Lab assay of single mutants.
Amino acid sequence: MFYPNSPQTSPQLTQIPYGQQYAMMQRQIQQPYHPFATTEPQARLYPYHYQGPIQQEQGGFITQQSTAASPQYVQMRVTPVDQSIMSGYPNQTANGSSSSSFNYNIHPQQQQQQQQQQQQLRHHAMPVGSVPLQDDRYRKQLIVNYLAPDVTSTDLHELFSRFGELDGARIIYDKQTNMSKGYGFVYFCHAEDAKEAVERMSGYEFHGKWLKVGYSTNPLNIVPSNSSPYVHAGSRGAAG
């Protein structure tokens, strides 16, 4: 039997160049792979992502010199942007860049009308829970959420009447099932009393439920100042 490094198959040491006398086997001759043993700084910083320098080929596509990437890492192929796409944008300079302001050559009167329309939209648009300043009635009506099913309009009136005089209180019921929808409205005579009720009743436990109280901004629920107070009856038909 002959071994790869046996004296019968191995040459004389004098015939082997210096430095390879003890590297006779194939696994010894093959050098191990060192990912950080390279002179390129990109490979030292990113050993798993770097795959060699990027070269520009004919046709405008950018390719990489090395083989496919590892399945664990996804390499994105980048193509140059066609400058003709950006030619339609206004205020574009000769080098292809555009300024931040756009001039669509709008007539001054049209621009003024658009600004007025935007101001009107901001004036009428009102986020949930906010209180408008032009109508004091919005500051007097509250919406009470997360009410228990057994709470009546009379219970709601008695709960909030300790903060001040009320114009009314009612629970909203479903017309088909005649069941409470879980929320109601309270109408105060003074805005200061309503503000105190919002601050003190939010998070209050009532009939096993934690109440959420806020201003009601729905104009359909506003009680006119010259109208008669609501009837605080315990029956659902009268309260709904």
Rank of each mutant, 00 (worst) to 15 (best):
G234C: 08
Q111P: 08
A23Q: 15
S225Q: 09
G182I: 03
Y204D: 01
G168S: 03
A23V: 13
Y183H: 00
F2K: 02
R139N: 02
Y33L: 05
Q75S: 05
D155T: 09
Q20I: 05
D150R: 05
Q118M: 11
R44S: 09
G60E: 09
Q75V: 15
Q56L: 13
F2S: 02
Q118K: 05
T152E: 08
M201H: 01
G237S: 10
Q111G: 11
Q56R: 10
P219A: 00
D155G: 09
L147K: 03
I16D: 02
G240K: 02
S228D: 03
Q8N: 06
Q111H: 04
Y3R: 10
G237Q: 14
Q112H: 10
L13P: 08
E205T: 11
H157I: 07
Y204V: 03
N178K: 06
G234N: 06
L133R: 08
I143R: 00
L166F: 07
N221G: 02
R44I: 15
S6R: 10
T177Y: 13
Q26T: 12
P41Y: 07
D167Q: 10
Y33E: 02
Q15T: 11
D82I: 14
A191S: 09
T67E: 10
Q119W: 15
L159W: 01
S202C: 11
K175D: 00
R139V: 09
Q56H: 09
P80R: 12
F102T: 11
Q42R: 05
R170F: 00
G234D: 02
T154I: 09
F36E: 07
F102H: 05
Q56D: 03
T14D: 05
S84P: 13
V81H: 08
N218M: 00
T152V: 12
H107D: 05
S228Y: 15
Q110I: 11
T67S: 05
N178P: 03
S99N: 12
Q83V: 15
S130D: 09
I143C: 00
I106W: 11
L147H: 11
G203Y: 02
Q113Y: 12
Q58H: 15
E196D: 09
T152K: 05
G208I: 00
W210L: 05
Q118G: 09
Q83G: 09
E196H: 15
S225H: 06
S228T: 08
F188I: 02
Q110R: 12
K212V: 01
I54Y: 13
D135M: 14
G19M: 11
R77T: 12
H124K: 02
R200S: 06
P219G: 00
Y18T: 05
Q58S: 12
K181W: 00
I172L: 02
A37S: 11
G182Q: 11
Q118L: 12
R236C: 02
A194Y: 07
V128N: 04
I29C: 15
A191F: 04
L147A: 03
M201V: 04
G129D: 10
R236H: 03
I106G: 10
Q111N: 12
S216T: 03
L142R: 01
Q21C: 06
G184Y: 03
R137H: 04
A194Q: 02
N95T: 04
Q65V: 14
S99K: 08
M201L: 05
P149W: 04
E158C: 14
K140T: 12
V231T: 03
I29Y: 15
S70Q: 14
Q31H: 13
Q111S: 05
T79D: 12
Y146T: 00
S235W: 03
G96E: 06
Q12I: 07
Q119A: 14
Y46C: 08
Q65Y: 11
V198L: 06
A68T: 11
P4G: 02
T152D: 04
Q113P: 11
Q116C: 12
P224D: 03
V144Y: 04
E192H: 07
V198Y: 10
S202W: 03
Q114P: 08
A197F: 07
Q8P: 09
T217D: 01
T67P: 06
I172G: 00
R77A: 09
Y138A: 03
R27L: 15
T217N: 12
Q58N: 11
Y183T: 00
D136G: 08
S99W: 15
L156W: 02
P71Y: 12
L211S: 00
K140A: 01
H49F: 15
Q15M: 14
P224T: 05
S216F: 00
V128H: 13
G129E: 11
P17Q: 13
R162G: 08
E205F: 05
Q64H: 11
T154L: 04
H232P: 08
Y50F: 10
T93H: 08
P80S: 07
Q120K: 07
G59F: 15
Q58G: 11
K209E: 00
A239P: 12
G184W: 01
T9P: 03
G52C: 12
S153V: 04
P80L: 09
D135E: 07
D135S: 03
L211P: 00
S98L: 10
V81G: 11
S216Q: 00
Q119F: 08
Q75T: 08
S101T: 13
Q119V: 14
Q12F: 15
E40C: 11
H107T: 07
R200G: 08
M76G: 05
L166M: 15
Q134G: 05
A37M: 14
P224C: 07
N226M: 13
K212W: 00
V151N: 01
S98Q: 13
M179F: 08
E158G: 09
A69M: 07
R44L: 15
Y173A: 06
S66A: 14
Y146L: 00
R77N: 10
A238W: 14
D82E: 05
Y50E: 03
A68S: 08
P80K: 05
P90S: 13
Q15W: 15
G129C: 03
P224I: 05
E158K: 06
N95K: 02
S153R: 15
D174M: 01
F206I: 01
N91G: 12
A68L: 10
A94R: 04
V213R: 00
D174F: 02
M24L: 07
A68F: 14
M179L: 10
G208A: 05
E192K: 08
S227I: 08
N145G: 00
P219H: 01
N91Y: 13
G88H: 05
Y50W: 08
D155N: 15
H157K: 13
Y33V: 07
F36C: 04
F2W: 07
P90L: 13
L211C: 00
S225P: 05
S235F: 02
Q55C: 14
V74M: 05
G88N: 03
K212Y: 00
N5L: 12
Q141F: 00
Y187S: 01
P132V: 04
P127W: 15
Q8Y: 14
R44Y: 15
N91P: 11
G59W: 15
M76I: 15
A197H: 06
P32K: 03
F206H: 02
S84L: 14
Q83H: 11
K140C: 02
Y187W: 01
A169S: 08
R27H: 14
G164F: 01
G240F: 07
P132N: 06
Y33K: 01
L121R: 08
P4F: 15
G182N: 03
R170P: 01
T154P: 11
Y146G: 01
S66P: 12
M126C: 15
Q120T: 12
S153Y: 05
G59M: 04
E40H: 06
V81W: 14
F61L: 06
A23R: 07
E40A: 11
Q75R: 05
Q120A: 12
S100T: 06
Q109M: 14
I16L: 11
L142S: 01
P108L: 12
S97E: 12
T152G: 06
H123T: 11
S228G: 11
I62R: 07
F185A: 00
R170E: 00
S99L: 14
M201E: 01
L121P: 06
A191I: 02
G129I: 03
Q75F: 15
G96V: 07
Q113K: 04
V74A: 11
G203F: 01
P127V: 14
K140F: 02
E199F: 04
E192M: 14
P32D: 03
G237E: 01
T79Q: 10
T63G: 11
D136P: 08
D167R: 01
R236K: 07
S161D: 06
N5G: 14
R200Y: 14
N221R: 14
R27C: 15
P11L: 04
A23G: 13
N91L: 13
V74E: 04
F188G: 01
S10K: 04
A194N: 02
I222M: 08
A191W: 09
I106T: 08
C189R: 09
F206D: 01
I143H: 00
Q8V: 10
